[in-house]
Amino acid sequence: MVRSIMLVGVGGQGTLLASRILGNVLQSRFDVKISEVHGMSQRGGSVVTYIRYGDKVFSPVIEKGQADMIISFELLEAARWMSYLKAGGELITNTQRISPMPVITGAAKYPDGIEDKIRAAGIKLTAVDALSAAEKAGSAKAVNVVLMGVMSKLHDGFDKELWEKAVEACVPAKVLDINRRAFELGREMV
C-alpha cells in the first residue's frame, strides 16, 4: 500500500525543510518519493510538496482525490488544496493567515469561516496556531517544525526518537534548540 501526504503553504514558509524531516523519518521503513517546487513559486506563491511512501512508489505526484493527509502551513492554502484529499482524508492546518496579492490590492476577499466550511465538507480537520507556538519557541520561522511536531503526534506510526533525530539531521545546528522547542510545542498542541 502507498500513502500520500501533501505539505502546502506559501513560498518562504519552509515547506521544503519540513518535507526533508518527514522524508528522513519515512525512509527508515519505506520506499519514499518526494516531489518539490523550486524556482519562481518560492517567491511568495502557493507551494506544494508531495510525499508518497509504501512498499514501492512509482509516481512522485499526488492529484485531486488522491491524498491521505494534507498539512497546510496557512489557512487559505488549506482551502485551496482540500480537493486533493481522498474520501476519509485528513487535514491539519496552521490558522495563520497570509494575504495573497489579489487580497492585498483589494481585487479579492480572503474567505471567511474557512475552518467551518472545510469541516462541513466532511473532512477531518485539525487546526492549530503554529505561528504563536513558533514565536514562543524563539522564531516565527519555526512554524514548519511546529507542524512536524503536530504531525508526529497525530501520525503515531513512528517513534518520537526517530522524529527527533530527523529534526537534528535536517535543521542547521545554530537554530537546533529553537527547533527542538518548536517540535515539542507542536506535540503538546494536539
Binding site: G65, L76, R80, M82, P100, P111, K117
Partner: peptide, 19 residues
C-alpha cells in the same frame, strides 16, 4: 476518474510576488 470535493467558494489565487 478520481472523485474529490472542492472548497465551496472561489479561493483567491496566490501568484508569486516580489518579496
Amino acid at each position: 476518474e478520481d472523485e474529490y470535493t472542492d472548497f465551496p467558494e472561489p479561493v483567491p489565487v496566490r501568484p508569486p510576488v516580489l518579496c
